[in-house]
Amino acid sequence: MIGRSEEYEKMFRLEGQLWWYRHLHERVADALLRQFGKKRDMSILDAGCGTGGLLLFLRQMGYTRLRGIDGSTDAVACCHDRELPVSFVNLNDLADFEPTVTYDVIVCNDVFCYFLDADLLPLIAALANRLKPGGILISNNNAFRAFRGEHDLAVGIVRRFVLSDFERLLPPCGLKRQSSTYWSFVLSLPIVLVRQWQQLQLKLGWHTPAEAMSDVYLPSPWLNKMLLGIVRAEQKLLTRTPFGSSLFMVCGK
């Protein structure tokens, strides 16, 4: 998404309100609670932190040792507006950035989708090398090609994942999956139908890739509240689901 200033501006304005971002942040907080209980002073790095919505959310929850990095100057500027401790770092160069500093938690949400294997494997290895013993890597990822649509084009996503991809990618980097689930399972059918309709319009030439719009927009308040309630209920009632537009994982060394 680097270079798409308008997308960062939308993210900056909406990630504290939009149902999808809010629930993703809640999932990260739940993973932290499960691993560390009520502890709030573990060191946390958000690698590819975007405009800082997750870091802001964690700060509001009382977490005190937060750090972020991102390869977009637009994103870093937004983080600095929020007075967040974020540095500009190209993730391809992560191995060279403060190489002796390690973390209890590294979060890398919706970042791997911008990397092909040749660059992704070194990135995952660099993230693994920054984990302290007993530390965890939390990662949310775009899932299943069936969900590919205009959003992918608008923000420059180059790939989507299934769990078997990470069963191949994680072990060479010294990581083991502790838990995982696809999510938005309950909403899968409407999302797939919308995305497939978008793909058909592109194939027929009714839309062009240059006209593609991202999913980062705020629906009406009642709909936003309803969608948030649905994904919250899904997480509570269905601890692991076999399908969804995202794949959420917690990994350890």
Results as ranks from 00 to 15, higher is better:
S245Q: 10
L120W: 01
E6C: 01
D110G: 04
S214G: 13
A31I: 06
S180D: 08
L120F: 04
K203M: 10
Y103G: 12
A31L: 09
K203R: 15
N92Y: 07
V107C: 15
G62T: 10
A143F: 01
T102D: 04
L238I: 08
P133E: 03
W197I: 07
S184P: 00
L193G: 07
L187V: 00
L200K: 15
A125R: 15
Q198H: 07
I124R: 02
R232H: 05
E6D: 06
I230E: 05
Q35R: 14
A128W: 01
D74Q: 13
P85I: 15
Q199P: 01
W222V: 12
V107K: 03
K132L: 15
G252W: 00
V231H: 14
W197L: 10
D74C: 07
L204N: 03
W183E: 00
S72M: 06
P242V: 04
A47K: 07
Y182P: 00
L32C: 09
V194R: 15
R65A: 15
F185E: 09
S180G: 02
V186T: 14
I124P: 13
P219A: 05
R130K: 15
R240T: 11
G52K: 02
M226N: 12
Y114I: 10
L55I: 11
R67P: 04
E7T: 02
Y21S: 08
L58T: 10
A31D: 14
G156S: 03
D110E: 09
G252Q: 12
R168V: 13
Q235H: 13
E15F: 06
Q178K: 07
G52L: 09
F144S: 09
T73R: 12
S179F: 14
